[in-house]
C-alpha cells in the first residue's frame, strides 16, 4: 500500500492534529486502505521550518505551516499575519480562506517554484493576548515586553500597537513569563491552555485582532503526479474538512476557555469593546504598507485583492 506522510506543528489533540487525524481517516476510508496516512506530531521531524522543507523535497507529502514560517518560502503569504485583516464574520473567513484567488491563484506559481502546492488554509482560533496587567488601549501597552513569533511583520505590528515586541522561540516563553523577562504573548486560546501559559499570566484579552491561520501544503511533484481521480478525492476531502475543522476548532477553543477558567479562576477575562478594538485596528492600517515594502514581489496585488475579496464576501453575507 501507498504511504502518505503528514507532518504538523502541534501536539496530540491540538487543532492541526484534529485536522490531520480526520484527513487520515477520510483518505484511508476512500481509498479502501490503498493509501495509509502516517501523522508526525510536533518536533518528531524537526521544527516548523524543517517540515516545510521536508515537504518541498518530497520526504513528506503534506505538512502544516503557519504563515510566519511559510514566509521564508513564499513571503507574500505573510499577508495572513496582518492584524484585523480578516473579517469578524467566520463565514466570510471560511469562504475567503478556502477559495481566495489572491492566495491560491496569484501565489500558485510561487508555491510551485518552491516545490510546494498550497492545499488549504484554515483558522485555528482567535488570537488572545496574555498579559500581566489590564490592557484596553494602546497606551496601556507602553513598556510591555510582548513576545511575538520571529517575523519582522509581527514585530512591527506590536510596535505599532504600542508594545515593546520581543521575538523569542516558544520554548523560552513559559519561563520568560514566569521570570518576567517578558510580560505578554499572543496565541489562540487552545494553545494557551496546551502550552500552560495561563499558569504564568494574569489577564486574557480578546482584542478581535485576528484569527491565527495555518496553511496545509503538499509536495508539488507528488500532487502533480496524482491521478485526476485522486486529486478530485483530495479536493472533496478538503472541502468537507473546511466545515469540520471550523466546528472542531470552535469547540476546542470554547472548551479551553472554560478549562482555563476552572484551572485558574483568578485570571481576568477582558473582551475589548468595539470602540476599544477600533483604536488598535486603526493603528494596524499602516501595516499594509509595511507588508508591501518588506515583502516586495506581488505583495501589493495580493493584499489589495485579498481585502477586496473579504469586502465582497462581507457584502454578500453581512459583516457579522
Amino acid at each position: 500500500a501507498e504511504e502518505w506522510k503528514f507532518a504538523h506543528e502541534e501536539s496530540d489533540g491540538d487543532v492541526q492534529d484534529i485536522y490531520a487525524e480526520e484527513f487520515k481517516r477520510m483518505v484511508e476510508e476512500r481509498t479502501d486502505g490503498e493509501v495509509s496516512v502516517t501523522i508526525y506530531t510536533y518536533g518528531q521531524l524537526g521544527n516548523e521550518n524543517d517540515i516545510t522543507e521536508l515537504t518541498a523535497n518530497g520526504a513528506v507529502q503534506f505538512s502544516n505551516a503557519s504563515p510566519g514560517h511559510l514566509g521564508s518560502f513564499v513571503p507574500e503569504i505573510q499577508v495572513l499575519l496582518i492584524p484585523y485583516l480578516l473579517s469578524e464574520n467566520e463565514e466570510v473567513n471560511k469562504k475567503v480562506l478556502s477559495n481566495s484567488e489572491a492566495l491560491y491563484g496569484e501565489l500558485a506559481d510561487d508555491f510551485q517554484s518552491k516545490g510546494l502546492k498550497l492545499f488549504d488554509i484554515y483558522p485555528e482560533g482567535e488570537m488572545v493576548w496574555t498579559t500581566k496587567k489590564e490592557v484596553r488601549e494602546p497606551e496601556d501597552l507602553e513598556g510591555v515586553k510582548f513576545r511575538v513569533m520571529t517575523s519582522p511583520l509581527l514585530v512591527e505590528a506590536y510596535d505599532t500597537f504600542g508594545a515593546d515586541p520581543v521575538a523569542l522561540p516558544w520554548g523560552e516563553v513559559y519561563s520568560g513569563l514566569q521570570l518576567n523577562t517578558i510580560d505578554a504573548q499572543v496565541n489562540p486560546i487552545f494553545f494557551i491552555e496546551s502550552a500552560k501559559f495561563y499558569e504564568v499570566t494574569d489577564y486574557l484579552i480578546w482584542t478581535g485582532e485576528q484569527e491565527y491561520t495555518t496553511t496545509v501544503v503538499a509536495n508539488s511533484d507528488f500532487w502533480n503526479g496524482l491521478s485526476e481521480e485522486r486529486q478530485d478525492m483530495l479536493m472533496d476531502i478538503r472541502s468537507e474538512l473546511t466545515d469540520f475543522i471550523y466546528e472542531e476548532q470552535q469547540k476546542l477553543n470554547q472548551a479551553s476557555r472554560e478549562n482555563i477558567k476552572e484551572e485558574a479562576p483568578d485570571i481576568e477575562y477582558v473582551e475589548l469593546t468595539a470602540e476599544e478594538r477600533e483604536a488598535f485596528a486603526e493603528r494596524a492600517e499602516q501595516l499594509d504598507q509595511f507588508y508591501i515594502d518588506e515583502v516586495g514581489g506581488n505583495a501589493e496585488e495580493v493584499v489589495e485583492k485579498l481585502r477586496s475579496e473579504i469586502e465582497k464576501a462581507e457584502e454578500e453575507m453581512g459583516e457579522n
Partner: peptide, 19 residues
C-alpha cells in the same frame, strides 16, 4: 530543578501543568 526545558517540552506534549 526549574526552569527546565525538558519539563517544558514534556508538559506541552503531554498536556500537563508545567507549573
Amino acid at each position: 530543578i526549574p526552569p527546565s526545558i525538558g519539563m517544558i517540552v514534556y508538559g506541552v506534549v503531554a498536556k500537563t501543568s508545567i507549573g
